[in-house]
């Protein structure tokens, strides 16, 4: 298992969470400690063990492609932090060239 120090700023970037200086130091240490604990898993011989995503029987579930009632647009948009007409409003995504 990997044992190198966790690059908490990089991980936070992937997770889209801004960290303060203090948080980066604290979380970095705590995550390092936790990884040490979870490294005990390397003691388990899993070479011939299949991975389990879910323990209880499951099979793919399909349904007919039928139109059924769903939440109406106003109910959904009423929860939006910002809206414009029938749309969610977000900050600019595409930069001007």
């Amino acid at each position: 298992m990997a044992s190198e120090k966790i690059d908490v700023r990089y991980v936070a970037k992937l997770a889209r969470i801004a960290l303060s200086e203090e948080e980066a130091v604290r979380f970095g240490k705590q995550l390092g400690d936790l990884l040490e604990h979870v490294n005990v898993l390397s003691e388990l011989d899993t070479a011939s063990v299949p991975a389990t995503a879910q323990v209880v029987e499951s099979r793919n579930v399909e349904r007919g492609d039928d139109v059924t009632p769903c939440l109406d647009r106003e109910t959904v948009l009423a929860m939006a932090p910002q809206r414009q007409g029938a749309f969610f409003r977000v900050p600019k995504i595409i930069a001007e060239s």
Partner: peptide, 17 residues
């Protein structure tokens, strides 16, 4: 890290079952 951590844990989970 996916295989080292996540997949390893999913295999350990099989062992629990």
């Amino acid at each position: 890290y996916y295989d080292a951590y996540y997949v390893k844990a999913q295999k350990a989970r099989t062992m629990f079952a």
